[in-house]
Write a protein that binds this DNA or RNA. Structure first.
Lengths: 106, 106
DNA sequence: TATATTTGCAACTGATTGGTTTCGTATTTT
DNA sequence: AAAATACGAAACCAATCAGTTGCAAATATA
């Protein structure tokens, strides 16, 4: 089983849950109220998100509050940065080629 | 079937393919050479990536060159920005609370 | 103590995934 | 024209996913 942030954000419901928890911690029932899905369906997403270590439980009496571990999202950010760096590099090379063509034209 | 960028980058092989194509267009065989997976396995990933519109085919004789549609990646970027904006907002609120506590302490 | 609420967990279902092997087609090479 | 190459598509398989229903455990309330 792959359990990383990319797996976590692959599902639209899970992305929405992440957005909800970005605002503040919530109980499973409160989260499920925001969706058409059943409580158990949401609960499964919460389990996956927990396994991805993107959210954490915190028991308070009989309620469990889920709160975000925003740091994990940085994995996505880092990957995106790497990707953009590669793209920039490619354009730099393209610039060099164009530059060479220009000087050859002289 | 969900076919969006988030689905595309959920798989580590597909992320690697994206990185490869960020450097420059490639044929399926050239791509497959970079992985332990078979050509057909890679081919399937290419189909999914194509359906997600993150890569595009370009036939040249009997070869097909896959090249990146880097714009699609902006969907991820936008979502990340939204997420970060929400988090910042939360911290702003936290700051306000702390500020209030401080003035009450006076 | 009996009951209601909040929740996780197990069993089951249908759809999708990632992979394989096999085949057909188009293009290049000989 | 024949052989080799590059590739997609189809059929199949095991594993995983998202969802369901039903149930048990813990905590709160009457």
């Amino acid at each position: 089983m792959r359990r990383d942030v990319f797996q976590a954000i692959a599902d639209p419901t899970r992305r929405a849950i992440i957005m909800l928890l970005a605002v503040g911690a919530m109980t499973p029932n409160a989260i499920a109220d925001h969706f058409d899905s059943s409580r158990q369906a949401v609960s499964k997403h919460l389990r996956i998100l927990t396994e991805c270590e993107i959210i954490k439980q915190e028991r308070q009496g009989r309620e469990i509050h889920y709160h975000l571990n925003a740091d994990k999202m940085k994995d996505v950010e880092r990957w995106l940065e790497q990707f953009k760096a590669l793209m920039d590099k490619r354009f730099d090379q393209l610039d060099t080629v164009l530059e060479q063509l220009k000087s050859k034209g002289k």
